[in-house]
Design a protein around this nucleic acid. Structure first.
Lengths: 164, 164
DNA sequence: CGCATCATGTTATGTTATAACACACAACGT
DNA sequence: ACGTTGTGTGTTATAACATAACATGATGCG
């Protein structure tokens, strides 16, 4: 861990970027309206930055962007916005990277799982299937509220090529 | 995350403490001899501290103990010893707590999973069964090298009691 | 001995995160 | 209109976590 933070690309496959940003923002707006919470300018812009970057970013990198746009220059501003977005499920925290990433499936509540490429830094989100771990927790009487599942390894593009 | 670090107890059930410390140390000594790596005084004492504490500890807490015994006072000393122990599999890092904990099953290589009580801070280690996540990673072509699985919740003792 | 390797000691600094308090502003009841 | 409450932002200061880089010592080997 602790490589120099800047930003890590997300996902191993191509997709329509402008479209996914737009729909994710719309979804977030709708959810916030439903829940009666405020998607303020700082919060909105923070989410937008993470969506546009489409990669895991450190809090201070997000802050630098906000600062460049006059939306706040001190750490608490970024941490508060990120905290809100994480609480609402629009953003996930990647523990191994001390970084944040816009959620790939903001529509439904879910526990995320991540695959992190140690070579190129790309992060892909999958849905977690708790399975046996949840069962064994239940057996010991432990009541799970939230899970962190992160795999580190090599993404398809970064694996050593086989000779043809 | 980010509660004040000090030390978190481990495990939800009672056990013979002196015995488990002793056998873990013996196992570590044997493994190091096998591998031709040195379990130096700082490393040995660091492991011993984590085993005795039997809880997740922050690097600076470990350092404070080492320092009290004249074994080193600067952060790199603790981080290096902890790094060695993690590399050898005698200690695990808990990402959500930025903390370290002696391994409960040092004999065999394994990927650990943890249950962390958000109320009392107790940490229990289980063996991870990767199952479906590993499969879905394989499908996307991602090659997993290491996994982090941590559940936060309430341990049996901290759950609200039911009226009898 | 000369040299390589591994471990430790130390300085300095980098990176991540929060506590605490001040202020702005909208919503509400009176 | 007025105060009150809740929520969000601005700011200062500091805490907590982690490593780069270089110096020193100890061990083993040709």
């Amino acid at each position: 861990m602790m490589r120099k933070m800047s930003s890590y690309p997300i996902g191993f496959t191509a997709h329509d970027h402008a479209q996914c940003v737009k729909s994710a923002l719309a979804a977030a707006q709708a959810v916030c309206a439903n829940r009666g919470v405020q998607l303020t300018p700082v919060r909105l812009r923070t989410l937008e930055i993470l969506l546009e970057e489409h990669a895991a970013m450190g809090a201070y990198d997000v802050l630098a962007r906000l600062n460049a746009e006059g939306l706040g220059s001190k750490p608490p501003v970024a941490y508060r916005a990120l905290g809100f977005l994480v609480d609402q499920g629009f953003v996930h925290r990647i523990e191994q990277l001390n970084a944040f990433i816009a959620c790939a499936h903001p529509e439904d509540a879910h526990s995320p799982a991540f695959m992190i490429c140690r070579s190129c830094g790309t992060v892909a989100e999958a849905k977690a299937q708790s399975g046996k771990f949840a069962q064994s927790a239940a057996q010991t009487g432990f009541q799970i509220e939230q899970t962190v599942i992160e795999a580190e390894g090599l993404c398809p593009s970064c694996q050593p090529q086989v000779q043809s």
